[in-house]
Design a protein around this nucleic acid. Structure first.
Length: 627
DNA sequence: ATCGGAAATG
DNA sequence: CATTTCCGAT
């Protein structure tokens, strides 16, 4: 710790300044920046929250672009470019466009940010409250603050996330603004002169998000759970539809991001994994009343609140159609599924939907250090596919060629690779066996289809061109935007095979009142050691990824298939073998159980998953235990 | 306005 | 990798 050390100099390690951004301290990202602007009153004329939760409007596109350009030292930035960047977020699911409203976009808070940055508080710095906070979905107006990260947050001990007088607040404050270093380039058109910003000085890492998010694992740990009702698990066709995000295949655990001296490297995980998507648009969007349990007042750490908090979150998962799969296996918490026969190998006898019975008490590691997380990384842009320009080579134009603003340089920053990692869905986990899916897929082409353009997102549906008529698209009525983004385009009509994620569909909606949810017994004292556990996670993640990868195959157009996958197998035979079902193409893994009628026996699937989950949990717990 | 492919960039 | 840049299409 060094926190307080020298008065005039801030002793915090570099990483302390960039909580949100990943480990490698990369440059600020656009959405972070947007969020930043959004929280400041000074910019209300330029950009502000408006409309639904998470929705914001850019009132002065040029200005926003200018600011952004200043921050990035890209004097030539303009709205056209900025908006392109914004559009890339659609695929990443960080944002989506609010149709019909000019310059209006919407953060996908429900799925991404909330999880990744539970603390996000859009309040403005000094004054709290004003409009900065987008309305919470449920209607509660206050801005919710989630429980602070766990104490163990190694990071800065006192770093009160938001206290204005915080230690490095001054720096942070400055940084928060645009003070970009000086983009030294002759062309520096202006750069930011914005309001009195100061001048920049040291800019260690740019940005000071300090308050916005401070995620950290702990929460993550908290969230990772969910067994889901929908635990789709078996849902055969599910798999994500095509979103192209899948976990990075590399090891999920970033090696310490910053090799830095402080050794703190681990602390800053990038974003946390989250929920992926897997949308399901057909859900009736229930206004989920539950979502805001503690909204009115402040949240407190006590177990009660925590519990509620989690419940709410879970509920939101249901309500928003998030993929439960994202939460699969997590030792820390397990949420009982609504229907779920007893887990474990118990005989299938009647299953009691809720109340499942075993209280598996999985400790929540609250004060603990979550094993570093694992961020799934998202893959977005498909790298240069093999397809190349279809258009022909006729034009060869070396884009801009010279020009470059030159300068650019500087920006010391580390440059480690970090990257966002949003959750991807681990579809695999559950071993989704998508029988039908695969069949359909194959039908598409087995040999390598020459060129079909597979739609990225719609994917699933891509195959069928069938009806679909118009139902979906179009219609201006803004259906819930929340879902809007989920629905690829046309969708839904066939419940039957639709492989998409209906994940939730089947299982009845979670009974609001009954969500026993995690029995939080927080018991384990913070032991930050146990690295092994970490390893275990890693293992799991690898598995998941592998699976996911396997199933990817044709879909994506975006997202690179990455070839990694199958890495090494576990030394012993199995352990977790959950997965499969999927393509089964790889051939090596043991044949998944054959789910008979995928639909018909969802239970079985679920059961299986549950069991696995349990098993895994137990296993992890055990292992963890000794560390 | 908005979308998204493609190539370039650091 | 996350844009930045350019651009044709809608």
């Amino acid at each position: 710790g060094k926190t307080q050390g020298r008065p005039e100099r801030i002793a915090f390690p570099d990483w302390a300044y960039k909580p949100e951004s990943s480990p490698g301290s990369r440059q600020i990202q656009l959405w972070h920046f947007i969020l930043e602007l959004l929280r400041k009153e000074e910019y209300h004329d330029v950009i502000a929250w408006q409309g639904d939760y998470g929705e914001f409007v850019i009132k002065d596109p040029d200005e926003v672009a200018r600011l952004w350009g200043a921050r990035k030292c890209k004097p030539q930035m303009n709205y056209d470019k900025l908006s392109r960047a914004l559009r890339y977020y659609y695929n990443k699911r960080i944002l989506h466009k609010t149709k019909g409203k000019r310059f209006t976009y919407k953060f996908n808070f429900n799925k991404l940010v909330l999880v990744n940055y539970p603390f996000i508080d859009m309040g403005s710095t000094g004054s709290n409250v004003p409009q900065s906070a987008p309305p919470v979905p449920t209607g509660a107006g206050s801005h919710f603050r989630f429980p602070p990260s766990t104490p163990s947050e190694v990071l800065s001990p006192n770093e009160d996330l938001r206290s204005p007088g915080g230690m490095f607040s001054s720096v942070a404050r400055r940084m928060a603004r645009g003070s970009v270093s000086d983009c030294s380039d002759g062309t520096s058109v202006n750069s930011e002169i914005e309001e009195g910003n100061a001048g920049a000085g040291e800019d260690r890492g740019e940005r000071g998000y300090r308050s916005i998010i401070h995620p950290r694992l702990s929460h993550e740990a908290l969230f990772r759970m969910y067994g889901g009702p929908g635990n789709p698990v078996g849902h055969p066709g599910s798999r994500h539809t095509g979103h192209r995000i899948h976990p990075d295949s590399l090891s999920p655990f970033p090696v310490s991001p910053l090799p830095g001296p402080g050794g703190a490297g681990l602390l800053a995980p990038p974003l946390s994994p989250a929920l992926s998507m897997t949308p399901t648009s057909h859900l009736p969007y229930t206004p989920s009343p539950t979502l805001s349990p503690m909204l009115g007042s402040h949240f407190s750490f006590n177990p009660e609140d925590m519990k509620r908090y989690l419940q709410a979150h879970t509920q939101s998962v249901y309500n928003y159609g998030l993929s439960p799969r994202a939460f699969l296996h997590y030792p820390s918490i397990v949420i009982p599924q609504p229907h779920r026969p007893a887990a474990d190998k118990h005989p299938p006898h009647s299953a009691h939907p809720h109340t499942h019975s075993h209280p598996m008490h999985h400790p929540l590691h609250l004060g603990e250090e979550p094993p570093h997380m694992s961020p799934f990384k998202f893959k977005l842009q498909p790298p240069p596919l093999g397809r190349k320009h279809r258009d022909s080579q006729s034009h060869s134009k070396p884009r801009q060629s010279s020009l470059s603003s030159g300068s650019g340089s500087m920006t010391s920053t580390s440059g480690l690779g970090s990257s966002l990692s949003f959750g991807s869905d681990l579809s695999s986990a559950s071993g989704s066996g998508l029988i039908s899916a695969s069949s359909s897929m194959q039908s598409l082409n087995s040999a390598g289809l020459p060129k079909i353009k597979v739609e990225p997102i719609s994917d699933i549906e891509s195959e069928e061109e069938v009806e679909v008529t118009d139902i979906s698209d179009e219609d201006p009525d803004e259906r819930d935007e929340e879902f809007e983004l989920f629905s690829p385009r046309h969708s839904r009509p066939h419940p039957d095979e639709d492989l998409d994620e209906d994940v939730f569909k089947a299982p009845a909606p979670p009974p609001p009142g009954l969500m026993p949810f995690f029995t939080s017994q927080h018991s384990n004292p913070p032991q930050t050691k146990c690295i092994p556990l970490k390893l275990r996670f890693k293992r799991r993640w690898s598995e998941d990824q592998r699976m996911e990868a396997s199933q990817e195959e044709s879909d994506d157009k975006k997202v690179r298939p990455e070839e990694e996958r199958e890495r090494e197998r576990q030394s012993n035979g199995r352990m977790e073998t959950e997965e499969d079902g999927t393509g089964s193409r790889e051939g090596d893994s043991p044949p998944p159980l054959a789910y008979e009628g995928s639909l018909a026996t969802p239970l079985a699937s679920q059961r299986r998953v549950s069991a696995e989950l349990h098993r895994a949990t137990a296993q992890l717990s055990l292992e963890n235990k000794d560390c």
